[in-house]
């Protein structure tokens, strides 16, 4: 047990670094800054038929067409109206660009590895594989997202499956 903890603590320390934080339904989230390509305000989204609700459609990113996903819907939160605070964060996952819609982008913070803890288990029903860990920033807790997991191949496949 002890060794296990030691190992995971070591893994957590390695997670230290810069994170882009954003708000979603009142909670603070973070994405590794290296995964983020760019951030822009809401723009016209072309909806695509036959896909899950959280896939809002596609946008034109300087000549490239990329899918956009509403993270609120993805995480089963209530849908919110898009306003001028709403942002699309473009992340690069294994060279594929995906836009994610968040309530508002906060700041870039440097979270030392010591301040990152393993995400607690919330019971079997709550999936925790989307989470890298919990980061402590000035008394606040930032949920660090594992974007690869959020948009893992399996997830993408499930979009396909749903559309079939």
């Amino acid at each position: 047990m002890n060794t296990e903890n030691a190992v995971s603590e070591e893994a957590m320390v390695q997670l230290g670094g810069k994170y882009l934080t954003f708000q979603l339904s009142g909670e603070g989230y973070g994405i590794e800054i290296l995964k983020v390509r760019e951030i822009f305000g809401m723009q016209q989204i072309t909806s695509v038929p036959g896909v899950p609700e959280y896939v809002k459609g596609v946008i034109n990113l300087r000549g490239r067409i990329i899918p956009v996903i509403d993270l609120r819907l993805k995480f089963s939160f209530n849908e919110a109206e898009y306003d001028k605070e709403t942002c699309i964060i473009v992340v690069s996952i294994e060279d594929v660009l995906v836009g994610i819609i968040v309530d508002t982008v906060s700041e870039v913070v440097d979270i030392p590895g010591d301040d990152i803890e393993q995400s607690p288990s919330f019971g079997a029903e709550t999936p925790t594989e989307y989470l890298l860990g919990m980061g402590k920033v000035k008394e606040r807790v930032i949920i660090l997202l594992n974007v690869e997991q959020v948009f893992s191949e399996q997830e993408m496949k499930s979009i396909e499956a749903a559309s079939n």
Binding site: V48, V51, R64, I65, P67, I159, E160, S163
Partner: peptide, 19 residues
């Protein structure tokens, strides 16, 4: 013609997108 990417491969009736 631009591909919509693998995400939308299964959507019927859509050959791709364009700007």
């Amino acid at each position: 013609i631009k591909s919509l990417g693998s995400v939308f491969e299964g959507v019927k009736g859509i050959a791709g997108g364009t700007i």
